[in-house]
C-alpha cells in the first residue's frame, strides 16, 4: 500500500461514519491495540481499505522506552496488524507506559539520557527484527521532565533516530505543548530536527488547565498549532498530516473545518 499522503484522520469507531464520507481521504491511522490480530477489520475500516485508503497501525502500549525488553507478544500483535491492513509502516512512541509491574495508563516521558537512548534503541531493534515494515517513532507531549537530562530534546531525538534508523512521526501539537510547558522556542526544535526523516505529522487539539497546556485530543486544534504547521512546511513539507481526535467528538461540520484548516496550513488538497 502507498505511503501516507496528504491530509488524513485518526480512524475511531465513534467517527467511522464521518470518516467514511470524506471524499478525498487517502490516509488514516488506527490504534493498533484496538484491532484483532487475525481480523476481521471493523466494517468501516475494511471499506476504506477497499477504496485504497492507506491504513497505518499506531501502537500506544509497546513501551519502547521501558528499561525492560519490549514484550514479544505485543510486537507480534503489531506485526500481525500491519499485515492485516497491508500497512506501508507502523508507528509508536518514544515513551514508556509501565514499570515495576504497574501500568501508568498513558505515555510517560523518558529522561533525556544516554541510558534512555540505549533502552529505546535496543527495543526498536527488537521490534524491527519482527516487523514486516518500517517503524516511525513519535516524540510525546510531556507534562514534566526528569531532573537529570543530559541532552536537549533535539539532540535526544536525533540520536535515537540516527542509531535506530527509524522514521520520525512528528506531532506538531506536542511540539507546541512542550515548548509552551517548558517555556522554550518551538521553532528552534523544528530547525534542529531531521525533517527529511518525517513519515507523517500528527495534529491535535488541547487545552490549558492549571497553568499547563494539556494535549487532550478532545479539544479543538488551537491557532498556535496551525501556525506551527505553516512554520514546519516552510522548512520542509511533510508527506502527510493527520488529525487525531480521541473523544469529545464535535459535530461533523467542526471536524471538517479542522481538516480544511490543516489542508490550508500545509497547502495540501482538502479532503472534505
Amino acid at each position: 500500500m502507498s505511503a501516507p499522503a496528504g491530509v488524513g484522520i485518526g480512524w475511531r469507531p465513534e467517527i467511522a461514519g464521518f470518516v467514511a464520507e470524506l471524499p478525498g481521504l487517502r490516509f488514516v491511522e488506527v490504534v493498533a491495540e484496538s484491532l484483532p490480530p487475525s481480523g476481521p477489520l471493523p466494517p468501516g475500516l475494511a471499506a476504506l481499505r477497499g477504496r485504497g485508503v492507506t491504513v497505518v497501525p499506531h501502537g500506544v502500549r509497546l513501551s519502547l522506552g521501558g528499561a525492560e525488553p519490549v514484550d514479544p507478544a505485543r510486537v507480534d500483535h503489531l506485526a500481525a496488524v500491519a499485515e492485516l491492513v497491508d500497512a506501508p509502516l507502523v508507528s509508536e512512541h518514544i515513551a514508556f507506559v509501565r514499570a515495576g509491574g504497574l501500568e501508568a495508563g498513558h505515555l510517560l516521558p523518558l529522561p533525556r539520557s544516554r541510558a534512555a537512548v540505549d533502552a529505546v534503541c535496543a527495543n526498536v531493534a527488537r521490534v524491527q527484527e519482527r516487523l514486516p515494515v518500517p517503524i516511525a517513532l513519535e516524540p510525546i507531549a510531556a507534562l514534566f521532565d526528569w531532573p537529570d537530562d543530559e541532552l536537549d530534546e533535539a539532540a535526544f531525538l536525533t540520536e535515537i533516530l540516527d542509531r535506530s534508523g527509524a522514521l520520525l512521526l512528528l506531532d506538531i501539537a506536542n511540539v507546541h505543548a512542550n515548548a509552551r510547558n517548558r517555556n522554550t522556542d518551538p521553532l528552534d526544535l523544528l530547525d534542529r530536527l531531521p525533517l527529511e526523516r518525517v513519515a507523517y505529522v500528527h495534529v491535535a487539539g488541547g487545552a490549558e488547565h492549571g497553568g499547563f497546556y494539556h494535549d487532550t485530543h478532545t479539544d479543538p486544534v488551537p491557532p498556535p498549532v496551525l501556525e506551527l504547521i505553516g512554520e514546519l512546511c516552510a522548512r520542509r513539507r511533510p508527506p502527510a498530516l493527520l488529525l487525531e481526535r480521541d473523544g469529545g467528538y464535535p459535530p461533523a461540520q467542526a471536524l471538517r473545518a479542522e481538516l480544511d484548516a490543516i489542508a490550508a496550513a500545509s497547502g495540501f488538497p482538502v479532503v472534505t
Binding site: A67, E68, A99, G100, L102, E103, L108, S113, A115, D118
Partner: peptide, 17 residues
Amino acid sequence: RADDLAARQAELVAALV
C-alpha cells in the same frame, strides 16, 4: 545504567499511580 533506569521508572510510575 539499564538497572538504574528500570528502578527509577518503577519509582516514577509508583508515584504517579
